[in-house]
Design a protein around this nucleic acid. Structure first.
Lengths: 200, 200
DNA sequence: TACGCATGTACGTTATCACGTACATCCGGT
DNA sequence: ACCGGATGTACGTGATAACGTACATGCGTA
């Protein structure tokens, strides 16, 4: 009473159970095999697999370790399922700053998406980070950049790295960073941003 | 065979606590605010934040939901931190089947990597899936492909989709699939594979 | 100062997680 | 058929996760 007794529904009760069972069987293990590898008792595993109980994080972590996975990897297995095509003329023209930086999104704007692909064009002497650009990414996000044309400098956390055509770089995108084009020609690069979280 | 007595300890006791606290404070919420949003009692939240208890998956999920995250996203926040550059001539020449399919890896072969970037070349009339190709990807993996040159057909789970230059497609890579080049010219495409799990 | 109000935490109780043991079932070998 | 041995599951018990309530402290305001 006193206000709405919290949420009666929305208990999207994590459905890791079937997943665990499938993975275990795919590895050719019995409940006791996994019990040995994980340090979790076989009966417990059985209950978890059938969704009869919700394990604590620590045992869930041990289970996933027994499956040669991290817990986050295990939990990630239950997300959207489908195929989405973004044709060239459907690309979302997201950027277009006067400072010489523009980019297009190549992946659909769906929730639960693990990676975002975008193609950036940077004019000579220009740099990213102007108005309208996503400033720094959410905690935990990670970025891979492939330089298709020209030269590019990545300035991250104080340090500067230079890329030449065909190089790629992977880094933690939640560190302060931006790109600069030190050359005399346009630079074109592809950015792969993973773990793009969302905040309102 | 007694299967390696497994690990006696390995209590890499999930350290989500401080993370939860940081996120909550970053959102300007009190324990009771988060309690309302998540349906988890404030005292419980306090204990979790200080690592005095290991929450069950269901409450952990409710907590992360209160933080506008999925549980996998929350857990993913504790992973490696660095920058790695792969220069063009460092690319690992991974494929090279006689059937007209070859590709190079653009991302470093590190554990904990969320995405793998590879550039594929497919000769006219050739298709992926020959010997030496990764057959189907691990459960939960997801793939985005960007067609840079030529035309390409994606055959997935029975259905066929045709891509033209500049198109991209995102799909679940744990479904049976392969690519074919229906054209008369070489096809070049970039593949972004996420959630690359590991099996031994 | 005293008050209201918000914060985070210590308490005691209930619900349930997680264990060890024991049971039922299926399958291959002799 | 009979018997090991492997599988997954139903108990009963101890541990602990999760709750509601009550306490301690801090801060702005009257």
């Amino acid at each position: 009473m006193a206000a709405v007794k919290a949420l009666p529904t929305t208990v999207d009760d994590i459905v890791v159970g079937p997943r665990v069972k499938a993975l275990r069987e795919a590895m050719g293990m019995s409940l006791r095999d996994l019990a040995d590898r994980s340090g979790v008792s076989a009966p417990m595993l059985s209950q978890v697999e059938r969704g009869e109980t919700s394990p604590t994080l620590s045992v869930a972590a041990r289970i996933s370790k027994g499956l040669d996975l991290t817990l986050s990897q295990l939990l990630r297995l239950d997300e959207s399922h489908h195929v989405v095509i973004v044709s060239k003329d459907q690309r979302r023209q997201s950027g277009g700053t006067p400072k010489g930086h523009s980019y297009e999104m190549l992946t659909p704007p769906l929730p639960g998406q693990r990676v975002a692909l975008s193609e950036h064009t940077l004019q000579p002497q220009a740099s990213t980070g102007g108005e309208g650009d996503s400033p720094i990414h959410e905690p935990g996000s990670r970025e891979t950049v492939l330089l298709n044309k020209g030269t590019l400098d990545l300035v991250i956390d104080g340090e500067r790295r230079t890329l030449s055509e065909g190089d790629s770089v992977t880094f933690d995108a939640d560190l302060p960073h931006h790109f600069e084009n030190p050359g005399k020609t346009e630079a074109v690069f592809l950015a792969v941003t993973s773990a793009g979280l969302k905040r309102g």
